[in-house]
Write a protein that binds this DNA or RNA. Structure first.
Lengths: 137, 137
DNA sequence: CATTAGTCTACAAAGTTGGTAGGCTTTTGA
DNA sequence: TCAAAAGCCTACCAACTTTGTAGACTAATG
């Protein structure tokens, strides 16, 4: 399951995707529209900025905005930025790999099953982009 | 990510799958072979028994064993038994559904994206069984 | 120079995870 | 019949993560 933080991040990105090209969007506006606690949202947006997805403008008329067109960022990228691994166990994670110290990955049945599951999930998440996160109304 | 508990459960099930038809297997044997803390493993196996996947025999010559042939239990079922939801967010979970109180599921872009992700993952996990968890040596 | 709006540091309650300790009960076989 | 074997059950707990909150600071605008 994705953490609340990751869900908030994805919702915020979806909102910013819908507003792409319209200039900076206030944290407070995102907070109200997507019902995300404002102080929590602050830290999330800041993290997304530090990860190079968003940029911001201070002062009056300021706010956050997507650096690139929404279709340039995949859901796989977005989830990894704030939510960590997509794989179900560390020893099959591509970006957050950790060697399994309790078993031999070459012969471990669980490992093989999880590799295949990971690939199936990635196939979807790498095809979908922030465009998909925009609301339908 | 799957919790350690779920990973242990899957490994234990894989071990029991390999020993299917050979009578009861000791907790201590599984603990040693799969490197799982024994007291933790006790609680996991007990839970799997209460969920109808395993049965046990007490006393000398006792132990745990699969009730059904390994191919009868899918990975989706196994994960749900001890690990909870497979879906990435509660409002798209089939077995652990919770209504999203912060948005309208009919128009929420995140919801739609996660439904598709869930279906892709399930398509794999419902096809694989405990047979897949057996080690290759 | 006042207002607006993002930035940064620090803290903390609550829940989850990953166990441990120790005794109880049931079954077997000598 | 009784002791050993092996699972059953209750209770506890340390560490970590999650999900926030509080409040001061900095930068930009007009």
């Amino acid at each position: 399951m994705l953490s609340k933080k990751t869900q908030y991040a994805l919702k915020a990105l979806g909102y910013l995707a819908a507003k792409y090209g319209e200039g900076p969007v206030l944290i407070s506006e995102i907070s109200v529209k997507k019902k995300i606690p404002i102080k929590f949202l602050e830290t999330i947006l800041l993290e997304l900025k530090q990860n190079g997805v968003l940029d911001s403008k201070k002062g009056k008329g300021g706010g956050y905005f997507l650096i690139n067109h929404p279709k340039k960022t995949t859901l796989a990228q977005a989830i990894r930025l704030v939510g960590g691994p997509i794989a179900l166990i560390p020893c099959v994670s591509i970006n957050f790999y950790e060697k399994c110290k309790d078993c031999d990955e070459a012969t471990c049945g669980l490992n093989k099953a999880m590799v295949q599951t990971r690939d199936a999930t990635l196939k979807i998440l790498e095809k979908k982009t922030l465009v998909e996160l925009m609301d339908w109304k």
